[in-house]
Design a protein around this nucleic acid. Sequence first.
DNA 1: TTTGACTTCAAACAGTTGTTTGAATAAGGT
DNA 2: ACCTTATTCAAACAACTGTTTGAAGTCAAA
Lengths: 227, 227
Amino acid sequence: MSPPTVAARSDGAQARERLLYAALRLFAASGFERTSVRDIAQAAGANVSAVGYYFGDKAGLYRAAFFEPLGDHCQGEMPAPGTVPLPDLMHGFFRDLLKPLKQGEAVQQVIRLHFREIVEPTGLWKEMIENELRPQHEGLVRVLCAEFGLRKADMELQRLTFAIIGMGIHFFVAQDIVQALAPEVMEGPGAIDALADRLAEGALAMIEAERRRRAAQPRPARRRSTR
Amino acid sequence: MSPPTVAARSDGAQARERLLYAALRLFAASGFERTSVRDIAQAAGANVSAVGYYFGDKAGLYRAAFFEPLGDHCQGEMPAPGTVPLPDLMHGFFRDLLKPLKQGEAVQQVIRLHFREIVEPTGLWKEMIENELRPQHEGLVRVLCAEFGLRKADMELQRLTFAIIGMGIHFFVAQDIVQALAPEVMEGPGAIDALADRLAEGALAMIEAERRRRAAQPRPARRRSTR
DNA sequence: TTTGACTTCAAACAGTTGTTTGAATAAGGT
DNA sequence: ACCTTATTCAAACAACTGTTTGAAGTCAAA
């Protein structure tokens, strides 16, 4: 058997990187359990033991694939309430939220890993909720509170927040379904931007409806006294 | 014979049922790959080989757990356009959609299995899309087409449909997230009904907004007749 | 050239997986 | 009583899992 085509000593960390991205691709495609380190090593053109060498173990490799490629891709911070008109804010929000759908394959795969974590938790998901989902959710909650003049979010506002975010999230979770039922909806960057704008307008309509509902309805019972 | 016709043994098909529901519970909790037939058999108080005996193999058991417990729990059919006022229709739609969230544990676990299938396909998901998701989606598309006087759904209408359904779906997919961020939103049947009503109102607001958008906007460019 | 740290590799390890086997047990029909 | 059929069981099977091993290789500095 002739030696493998890859250079035997190919500058150290190259193998690590190949491993990382092969792992990202395979984990995103098939999940943690269905992906074996042997498959990853083979796809990366590296030896099985290289994953032990560079990442400790399979879980370490998964963790690296989960966090590293995203780099400093910080979630778009929500502007402080009042500094930006609500329509602009919502449009910006959905543009940011859906941005990964337009980006490179690697980012999309990371996103896919993150959503996979929701359904098939490997242990990183608590960390993910606190670091990614909670700030995003509470950012929007804060904005809506200011919008309705609330000091503290009530249940209706929480519902509204989940509904608004859920509209966006759905296009990540259900990528394959959209693909099967109406592929044109997500084809090309233009379609994504248009989608973000429509979702923003939809969210604004929902917020307006909620505002009317609150105006029409008598003051909800206050469980806590003022402090 | 694979299907045991008569219970020769007192516990006969009981073992099959115990196996089925233990499998449902464990598959829903941990997914296909992370669940071993040994664990299932032990949880069911049956022997490992009983799964081979009753279901052929692990995949057969999974399939049975996936389809059987739902029984005739048909998805609520969408009424023909025009027979029901839109607000009632949307309220009914979300009540039906969220109904499983109030139902027994078994149904919820099946639902969880179904959503798991979206992210971690085991091969049943094509079948699922065609039998469950497509009819639901196209039912709503048909209603909205009638609402806007369209012969055929355009991309905007597809977007709107996904956004509306996505709001509801999100509360299945992200049950754990809701639990972590604002548990009161989904606590108790009353909360679910209220949630369904709010989502319906939100959807109606979005539909109204879209109607206005269509009215305000010049006729969408028709590509085919130009030139 | 020799040294020594860094990197690769094939092989082996120990454990778990889904599945099969063949004997043992129970119930009914004759 | 017998025979047949249905069901259970412990054990064994082969294949695969993630991980470790120890030797071999590569390269830069001494």
